[in-house]
């Protein structure tokens, strides 16, 4: 199942940087080496077995932009599932940004009226910490008003912290067809093994695609933080030409297990009973693999009798 995703925004707003970090394992610092995107760069990202993101990274220089709205209009805006529009929060020419954004909306309305629209207010790290919340609220309010009558979801992002993972996780989760079934099964799995929290990560990007929790955690941003932490560690391993297969981290209060799960996912299981031997949890994870593998495979969605499979 191919889903076309348009990534647009003014030149230098950070589209290619964020794409490289999420999908191509760049570390934030290395993105300074990226040059300007010429015309449109296409990339296919396999995201879970059956879902392929067809990412159109559209260079944002004026001449390209004008072409997108004229000669290439049909080509670009047809069959779009998602538009991600990136705004540089420190942009000096908001009016021009808004003009292009509205042209995009108009073109979408004609060619792909069903497309979902996301706005990323990017480079938030350039603002002082205490201003970020207010400025973002203001911008998001403006954008929602400008997008009327369509609806839009706004995120604040920066490549230097976990906000980028939050935005992309949310966007990608909306594209997964059987996300509800996945979440149900995950909850059931967590109950059976008595876990505090279970997270499902996409293998390549480490975006959280599904989660469930039974215990309240004080940190509401933890999913994207965990994504970020693990992805960083994965990159450290790759410097040595290695990949990690599994991890266990524990102290007196908790034990966390990260393990390869299905062919496209990693799973994180958090237990708060440290007396339980690690092997017990690992066996449970191993046993659940087969079921989730089936769930992921679209030809074989066995939703009704899944409750009996992994006891």
């Amino acid at each position: 199942m191919k889903k076309k995703v348009l990534l647009m925004g003014k030149s230098g707003s950070g589209k290619t940087s964020m794409r490289s970090i999420i999908f191509a394992n760049y570390i934030a610092r290395d993105t300074t080496r990226l040059g300007a995107t010429i015309d449109v760069e296409h990339s296919h990202v396999r995201f879970l077995g059956n879902l392929v993101l067809n990412l159109w990274d559209c260079g944002g220089q004026e001449s390209f932009m004008n072409q997108y709205f004229t000669q290439q209009r049909d080509n670009i805006f047809r069959n779009v599932e998602v538009l991600i529009y990136v705004f540089d929060v420190e942009s000096q020419e908001m009016e021009r940004d808004v003009h292009y954004y509205q042209s995009c909306l108009e073109a979408l309305l004609q060619n792909s009226p069903e497309a979902k629209i996301f706005c990323l207010v990017h480079k938030m790290d350039l603002l002082a910490e205490e201003q970020r919340e207010n400025i973002f609220k203001e911008r998001a309010g403006d954008l929602i008003r400008l997008s009327m009558p369509g609806s839009v979801t706004c995120f604040r992002t920066s490549i230097w912290d976990e906000t980028l993972y939050k935005a992309w996780s949310s966007i990608v989760t909306m594209l997964i067809p059987n996300v509800a079934a996945l979440e149900n099964s995950l909850t059931h799995f967590a109950n059976v093994i008595d876990a505090d929290e279970v997270l499902l990560f996409e293998k390549a990007t480490f975006l959280v695609i599904s989660h469930c929790r039974s215990k309240k955690n004080r940190d509401s941003h933890r999913f994207e933080k965990v994504s970020n932490i693990i992805k960083q560690f994965k990159l450290s391993c790759s410097k040595l030409g290695a990949k990690f297969q599994s991890m266990e981290v524990r102290n007196n209060a908790f034990a966390a297990f990260i393990d390869t799960f299905t062919s496209n996912t990693y799973v994180l299981v958090v237990m708060s009973d440290p007396t339980l031997p690690s092997e017990a949890t690992l066996v449970n994870i191993r046993n659940a693999r087969k079921f989730f593998e089936e769930l992921e495979n679209p030809n074989n969605i066995a939703m009704n009798h899944h409750n009996h499979k992994y006891h």
């Binding site: 933080k225 599994s246 007196n252 209060a253 440290p274």
Partner: peptide
């Protein structure tokens, strides 16, 4: 990684305690 993860799932004050350990397979 261990300290960051522990600060999330226990608390920052007790991230590194007498039970801290970690095992990673590459």
């Amino acid at each position: 990684m261990v300290i960051d993860l522990s600060s999330i799932y226990s608390s920052e004050e007790t991230a590194f305690d007498s039970g801290s350990s970690s095992l990673i397979k590459l």
